[in-house]
């Protein structure tokens, strides 16, 4: 069974992003980039499925600028077998990425596409669901547990009221939530090994996909900042201020 894992190169989750002075975009110059944390969880899960004898091959795929190669190498250091880079400098929006992934799915014929549930830059939470729709495959999003047996995946999903478990026939798109697993740290020997794993480069035109953005960013701004208030002396002081000053209790 082949598993395809899309990975996105995003601003590292520890970086406090700033807006460019002309409000056109977020300033990404000299900012540390990393693999989207949810995608890292997806890679880890796919590698565990391979280690558990369920998957036979884990293929990672990234779309974007040439530097996305680094993200693919990171995924291969975790244990993915090979990488595919769809190289483009065009701003890629979720629908375009889903179409690119569809083109790759038609070629690679994976049984499972395992995505992160959302990217921490645009917070869109769309790509996996869109791919499932385009492929007419079932989807099991926000997974906190995945059990694959035969041609079926049983997935526990994190939903607003708690948890739900669904069964989906394969092929299917699954998306990883935070508590699916804790990704391993890549060891130095595995990082070295990853450098020698196959990495194929293609582009949207070769895949026959129009990636023209449908959404235009008019401006980006920083939200109004909350300022620190005051320190209260003790519980009595706090209750008094909440009652008489803030009037919220």
């Amino acid at each position: 069974m082949k598993i395809l894992v899309p990975v996105k190169r995003v601003v590292d989750y520890n970086v406090k992003v700033r807006v460019k002075s002309d409000a056109s975009d977020v300033d990404l110059a000299n900012v540390k980039m990393s693999m989207n944390p949810f995608d890292e969880i997806a890679v880890e899960e796919a590698v565990r499925l391979k280690e558990g004898g369920i998957a036979t091959e884990v293929v990672v795929i990234s779309a974007g600028v040439a530097n996305c190669q680094e993200t693919l190498r990171t995924a291969m250091a975790i244990g993915a077998d090979r990488g595919i880079l769809i190289q483009t400098d065009v701003e890629l929006q979720p629908l375009a990425v889903a179409k690119l992934l569809k083109a790759v799915c038609e070629k690679e014929q994976p049984q499972i596409v395992l995505c992160g549930k959302q990217a921490i830059d645009d917070d869109a939470n769309q790509t996996g669901q869109m791919l499932a729709g385009l492929m007419n495959w079932p989807q099991a999003t926000f997974a906190s547990k995945i059990v694959v047996a035969g041609q079926q995946a049983t997935v526990t999903r994190e939903i607003d009221g708690g948890l739900e478990t669904i069964e989906v026939p394969l092929p299917a798109v699954l998306t990883a939530d935070l508590r699916l697993n804790e990704p391993r740290y890549a060891t130095l020997p595995n990082i070295m090994k990853a450098k020698k794993k196959p990495l194929e480069t293609t582009n949207p035109a070769a895949l026959g996909v129009d990636v023209t953005p449908r959404l235009k960013t008019v401006k980006v701004t920083e939200p109004p900042k909350r300022t620190a208030g005051i320190k209260v002396a003790d519980a009595a002081d706090l209750v008094m201020k909440l009652k008489t000053e803030a009037k919220v209790i």
Partner: peptide, 12 residues
């Protein structure tokens, strides 16, 4: 976007 650290105005 960016965990609410940036607010984007988007035209479709």
């Amino acid at each position: 976007i960016y965990a609410g650290n940036v607010v984007a105005t988007i035209k479709s």
